[in-house]
Design a protein around this nucleic acid. Structure first.
Length: 280
DNA sequence: CGGCAAACCTGCGAGC
DNA sequence: TGCTCGCAGGTTTGCC
């Protein structure tokens, strides 16, 4: 489920319960995620103090005072829950349980097990195989119109497929790509290399705007980013086109009977939603 | 190298 | 009610 805004919301929810606290125990209940959990994962975390919790692309980073950083990717179905002291026993898909020194538990739950965790030296993270190929984070300074245009230059695939490529921009996923293309008025079928100049400017700012709105929704609709269930990172979404096949396009007042409203097509074997009248 | 399908897994909703 | 089918927010791999 999680794209960049959901991961950001998870991170903001973890910060108050982990920052400055000591991890008392790490229980790896199922090690066979997409990549097997490293054998020394629990040992390197237990007894260590958390210096900070942050995000890179769709990865959650838990930086320890020891100089190690644990990283987690939630894949398609990964979730993180915060449980108060004396919680219910862990469920079927709670693969990792972190218990903090004050008794608070953090659980990584992932039915499909497409997620992964890893631990590495903090000063070597930039060279880590997961990070070395990542493009700029769309919420950071390195992402803007000219940078996006340069990354897209010469690319022969559709713009939709190019934006799925984490080397171009790191953190976008299937949903927010549809949303950003809609916001910018660019057709998902447009040749990626043809998105240059003012079109690239427009797309870059649409990406920033769509993500900022989603992150704001994550923080505003919940108390401290935590739902009553203890779940982090999921909130009431308000997508303009994603999942709205056949509905009226919210951007134009066209006649649905004639235009078909929001269209669903398949690109790179993923669904894309768009308005063929508004997006060119 | 580029582009695409398949693979990794489980759960859920729709339709019969 | 219960079964089967199709689909799902990510990423890697292998094939042409």
């Amino acid at each position: 489920m999680p794209e960049l805004p959901e991961v950001e919301t998870v991170v903001r929810g973890l910060q108050p319960v982990m920052t400055g606290q000591t991890i008392a125990k790490v229980d790896v209940r199922r090690p066979d995620l997409r990549i097997p959990i490293p054998k020394d994962f629990a040992r390197r975390l237990e007894g260590q103090q958390v210096a900070q919790v942050r995000r890179r692309a769709k990865y959650v980073l838990i930086e320890l005072a020891s100089g190690d950083t644990a990283l987690a990717h939630l894949g398609m179905s990964g979730r993180i829950f915060i449980e108060p002291q004396n919680p219910e026993p862990p469920g079927k898909h709670d693969h990792i349980v972190f218990t903090m020194a004050d008794g608070t538990q953090i659980r990584l739950n992932d039915p499909r097990r497409f997620g992964l965790v890893e631990i590495d030296r903090t000063d070597a993270l930039d060279q880590h195989r997961f990070f070395v190929h990542l493009g700029p984070d769309p919420t950071g300074n390195g992402f803007n119109g000219p940078a996006l245009a340069a990354a897209l230059k010469g690319k022969k695939c559709a713009i939709k497929a190019a934006l799925l490529d984490q080397r171009v921009v790191a953190g976008l996923g299937n949903i927010y790509i549809s949303e950003a293309l809609f916001e910018s008025g660019i057709s998902p079928k447009r040749l990626a290399g043809a998105v240059q100049g003012s079109r690239a400017e427009k797309l870059a700012s649409a990406v920033q705007q769509v993500l900022a709105r989603a992150i704001a929704a994550g923080g505003s609709s919940l108390r401290d980013y935590v739902q009553p269930s203890g779940e982090l990172g999921y909130f009431q979404h308000q997508w303009a086109v994603y999942g709205r096949e056949g509905e009226a396009c919210p951007g134009c007042d066209c006649d649905i009977a004639r235009t078909g409203g929001v269209q669903r097509i398949v690109q790179a074997s993923r669904s894309t939603f768009y308005c063929s009248r508004r997006q060119r």
